[in-house]
Amino acid sequence: MNAPRKLWLWHVPLILLSAIMLLPLWWMVVAAFDPMHALIGGHLTLWPVTWNLKNFVAAWRSQPFGRYYVNSIATTIGIVTLQILTSSLAAYALAFLTFRGKRIIWGMTLLAMMIPVQAIFIPDYLILSQLNWINTYQALILPFAASAFGIFWLHQAFRNVPRALVEAMMMDGASPLTILWQLILPNTRPAVITLAVLNTVFHYGYLFWPLLVTNTAAYRVLPLGLSYFVAQQSGFMQWNLMMAAVLMTVLPMMVLFALAQRYLRAGVMHYGIRG
């Protein structure tokens, strides 16, 4: 495609749009570091009076954020690890093995993909409460240990591995696990990493499910902790403390984004349309 002339003119709207996109984030940072922010009404504050960390200390003390971090990180790692494990095993079977009932299993996977958690949370909740799992890590993790979308996504990626290579390894008597580990996963890395990152972002930020299955601080995850922190502040809103709390919550995802964005681009680009 040949580029239109005067392409550089597009920098004007692009910079403007970028500023609009970054404004909420910048405001969050300024408020989080500015000790005076809550007191300044009616003034444009795009630079803090002083950069200090007092808000972070105050926010950290007002809620057990340490515990929330542990819960969030444990839950997210648990879900993502289990999901990649169960999905890659299932996707391998569906992509490379022959067995009776394969079409039914594939149909079930597609069906499950169409059903959002937000529509079936009542029976899910009842199952967990029957098991006495309310306020446990199991309740936070196990409902998402298997994912139809994960199976579907990895199946699409696995299909791109040349079949002759898989058959050659089968001929050598390699077990499916060996083939999966030594051939399939290394060759589909962008897809696997993309799935892992998208899942991490989603489950780290997920408020709906933890809201249903936990009601004590001991098992509260960060987004839920944030919402409690907001609810605690009645009347006079200390936005500086809240933005410090938000920034603490967001930071791990920003770091992850910085580390993974190269893979993410490759992954979404190559598999985006099929996901």
């Binding site: 095993l89 299993i105 079930m108 499950a112 240990a145």
Partner: peptide
Amino acid sequence: MLAPALLGLSVFVLLP
């Protein structure tokens, strides 16, 4: 290989 995924999907998606 399908068992773990099928167990999870059955209990938490299809049965509900």
